[in-house]
């Protein structure tokens, strides 16, 4: 297991957003978290990446406890994410957004920028090349000079994934990556995520599009009102009474 989460909890005042959730993430797997609106999925992600500190519980990453670390430390450990509501650097170019993502891998900072020494120049060149390669991969290379805010919605999502990948993570957290995408784009996304797994990346994904998840995920965790109500393969989840009642059941109403 690359990540193990035990009894993770987060309250907002009296509201319990996430309650004693356990989750074990196998290395190289695609793991999905699903659930109806307000199930606490995004809060769960925010707690993992320390954007919102959790109230209690443990998160173990490659044998190391990380629930008390800052967001930048977590990022340095090899965990990257995208956001449900896209959070690109709107007034930066597409390329710059991705270069920003490479930040972790480069050491020379103030001193390097002042002296422009050999290492600094090499690193700058490397990060630029790496960023271009990633843009190539998501199909945005031609638009590298545009302001991020000028891209259409679906491409902004792709860019956010490229930026997350720029930090060369071991775990990629995707928060509703298919939201706002058309069918063709969703299919491309599915292929893309599979390709990432083939490269050895572990993916934790929140998604509303059940069809996408059922075809993609190795394992699925279902949250409802902050509580984990089921976990298993796609087939197991589809036949789980509780899930049908809480989630799929609601849809039929």
């Amino acid at each position: 297991m690359i990540m193990e989460i035990a009894k993770l909890e987060k309250h907002f005042g009296g509201l319990v957003a996430v309650q004693e959730v356990d989750l074990a993430l196998a290395a190289g797997s695609i793991h999905a978290v699903i659930g109806p609106n307000g199930a606490g999925k995004t809060t769960f992600f925010n707690a993992i990446t320390s954007i919102i500190p959790c109230d209690s519980g443990q998160i173990t990453w490659k044998g190391e406890r990380i629930e008390k670390l800052s967001p930048q430390s977590i990022s340095a450990k090899g965990i990257a994410r995208t956001f449900q509501n896209i959070r690109l650097f709107a007034f930066m170019s597409v390329l710059e957004n991705v270069i920003a993502g490479t930040h972790n891998h480069f050491r020379s900072f103030v001193w390097g920028a002042l002296t422009r020494n050999a290492r600094y120049r090499r690193e700058e060149k490397e990060s630029r090349e790496m960023a271009m390669a990633l843009l190539e991969k998501v199909g945005l290379a031609e638009k590298h000079a545009e302001y991020a805010r000028n891209l259409p919605y679906g491409e902004q999502r792709k860019l956010e994934i490229a930026r997350a990948l720029a930090s060369r993570p071991d775990l990629l957290l995707l928060d509703e990556p298919a939201a706002g995408m058309n069918n063709t784009e969703t299919e491309e996304l599915e292929q893309f995520i599979r390709a990432l797994r083939a490269e050895g990346l572990t993916v934790l994904i929140i998604e509303h599009d059940v069809k996408l998840i059922m075809g993609l995920a190795d394992r699925i965790t279902v949250l409802d009102h902050g509580v984990k109500i089921a976990e298993g393969t796609a087939a197991e989840i589809q036949n789980n009474e509780k899930v049908i009642e809480a989630y799929l059941g609601k849809r039929r109403v």
Partner: peptide
């Protein structure tokens, strides 16, 4: 890169910290 970091923090410091 240092300038990029400053601009990133200026635009969205939470996301920047995630980078």
């Amino acid at each position: 890169k240092i300038g990029l970091a400053v601009r990133a923090v200026a635009l969205d410091y939470r996301t920047a910290s995630l980078m």
